[in-house]
C-alpha cells in the first residue's frame, strides 16, 4: 500500500517496527545520537528498498539484518575514527550469540510485540503490567 502512495500504510509500518529497529543499536550500547542515526539510516533504506519487499512477513527479518549491518558499519567507522584496533567488529553485541542467533532474538521479540498488539484490551493491559 505504501508503494501505491498510502502515507498511512507507511506510518503503520514505522510505528509497528520502531522498537525492532531501535532495539538493535540499544543492544549494541550505542549512544542516543548514534542510535538515532542508525534508526534514520534504516528508515531511509526501508523506503528505498520497499519495492523489493515482495512478502510483508519478511520485513521483520530484513529489518533485523539491515539494522544489524548498519550498527556494525557504524561501529567500524567509530573504530577507524579513534584508530583503535579491534578484531571483534563483526560480532553481535551479546558475546554468547553469533550474528544469526542475534537476528533470531530480534525477530522473536518482534513476534511477541505483534502478538501482544493483537490481544484485546484487558488481556493486553494485563500483559503490559508485567
Amino acid at each position: 500500500m505504501c508503494l501505491k502512495g498510502d502515507a498511512l500504510a507507511w506510518e503503520t509500518l514505522i510505528v509497528r517496527y520502531r522498537r525492532l529497529i531501535y532495539s538493535v543499536p540499544v543492544r549494541f550500547a550505542f549512544e542516543e545520537a548514534d542510535a538515532a542515526d542508525v534508526f534514520q539510516a534504516v528508515c531511509l533504506k526501508l523506503l528505498e528498498h520497499l519495492h523489493e519487499v515482495k512478502d510483508e512477513r519478511k520485513i521483520s527479518g530484513w529489518l533485523a539484518t539491515t539494522t544489524t549491518r548498519q550498527c556494525l558499519h557504524m561501529k567500524s567507522l567509530k573504530h577507524r575514527e579513534t584508530g583503535s584496533d579491534d578484531n571483534k567488529l563483526e560480532e553481535a553485541p551479546d558475546p554468547s550469540l553469533n550474528l544469526e542467533e542475534f537476528r533470531i532474538v530480534i525477530e522473536q521479540q518482534q513476534a511477541v510485540r505483534e502478538a501482544v498488539e493483537e490481544l484485546t484490551g484487558r488481556c493486553r493491559t494485563l500483559i503490559e503490567m508485567l
Binding site: 505504501c2 502515507a7 507507511w10 506510518e11 514505522i14 510505528v15 520502531r18 522498537r19 525492532l20 529497529i21 531501535y22 532495539s23 540499544v26 542516543e32 542510535a35 538515532a36 534508526f39 534514520q40 528508515c43 531511509l44 523506503l47 521479540q109 511477541v112 510485540r113 501482544v116 500483559i127 503490559e128 508485567l130
Partner: peptide
C-alpha cells in the same frame, strides 16, 4: 516484555521516520 520499553525510540525520531514518506 520487561525489556521492550527500553527499546522505545524518542517520539521525534519516530515522527521523522513517518515524515520521510
Amino acid at each position: 516484555l520487561r525489556q521492550d520499553t527500553f527499546f522505545e525510540p524518542p517520539v521525534g525520531l519516530v515522527q521523522w521516520g513517518i515524515n520521510l514518506f
